[in-house]
Amino acid sequence: MAEEVGIAAWRAVLLAHSAAVRAIERDVQRHGQVSLSWYDVLLELRHSDGGLRMQDLSERVVLSRTRVSRLVEEMVRAGLVRRRPDPDDGRVSWAVITETGRSALRATAPVYLDSIRTHFVARLEDGEAEVLRRALMRVAGRPADEPLPGAAPR
């Protein structure tokens, strides 16, 4: 019985993730300056200060892991990111957010956050968000009290 409930919980996570991400992507696409995938990359780069090695960026993004190299190339062409060679290892390149990228991130953040509130937070009852956060962080192998990276850019 417990295993059936666990499998049902897994299915619920997938359904909720799919529905929320699709709705948030629609809102960001309509009212933001960048796509949700680009926002995810820009957010990680902004939190890194000096940029990230491409391999590290691939490990940190949440929404577009398999396409990070292609996404970064598109973002370079759009002027949101620049590539920088690693001074210690010529085989490695870094992705660095540009001022244009920071501006697009700041402009899209309110849409992104409002959409999360509408399509996720508003559908939870008091206390459920904290229970979900703790449980899902445990499943992710992360400390339940890990500080939030922050979704609102400086």
Results as ranks from 00 to 15, higher is better:
D49C: 11
Q55K: 11
M75S: 05
L45M: 03
A23H: 05
V72M: 01
S64R: 13
G32W: 00
S48H: 03
M54Y: 01
A107H: 01
P147V: 10
L36Y: 08
R82H: 01
A151P: 08
S58R: 10
A16V: 05
V34K: 02
T98I: 03
I7L: 14
T108L: 02
I97K: 03
T100S: 05
R60H: 07
A129F: 12
G51S: 06
E59L: 09
V92T: 12
L45S: 02
R83Q: 07
R67N: 09
R83C: 00
V121P: 01
R70G: 09
L132Q: 06
R138L: 15
P87M: 05
V28P: 01
R133C: 08
T100N: 02
H47W: 07
A109I: 09
L132N: 02
G79M: 07
M1W: 06
L71Q: 10
V5K: 14
G79D: 01
A122S: 15
E130N: 12
G50T: 09
R91C: 07
I116G: 08
R67W: 05
R77H: 09
Q55R: 10
V28K: 06
T66D: 03
G127K: 09
E44N: 10
D89K: 11
E73A: 12
R106C: 02
R123N: 06
R117L: 10
S35I: 11
I24E: 02
V41G: 04
P85D: 01
A12C: 04
G101D: 00
L136M: 09
G6N: 13
H31C: 08
P147K: 08
T118S: 14
G79K: 04
R123Y: 01
D114H: 15
M75Y: 05
T118W: 09
L52A: 01
A151T: 13
R142T: 13
D126A: 15
D49K: 15
P149F: 09
G6L: 13
D145F: 09
A95Y: 00
V72S: 00
A122Q: 13
S58L: 05
L42T: 00
D145T: 14
R84Q: 04
V96M: 00
M54R: 03
P153M: 11
D126P: 12
P87D: 04
R53E: 11
P85M: 00
L45D: 01
A109K: 08
A12K: 07
E59Y: 12
H31T: 12
S37H: 08
H119E: 07
I116S: 05
V92A: 10
F120V: 13
I97E: 01
P149Q: 12
I116Y: 09
V28N: 05
A95D: 00
S35K: 12
R22T: 04
A144I: 14
R22K: 06
P110C: 07
Q29D: 14
E3S: 14
A144N: 11
A107Q: 03
R134C: 05
L80Q: 01
V121Q: 08
T66H: 03
V139F: 06
R117A: 14
L148S: 11
S35P: 08
P110N: 12
P149M: 13
T98V: 01
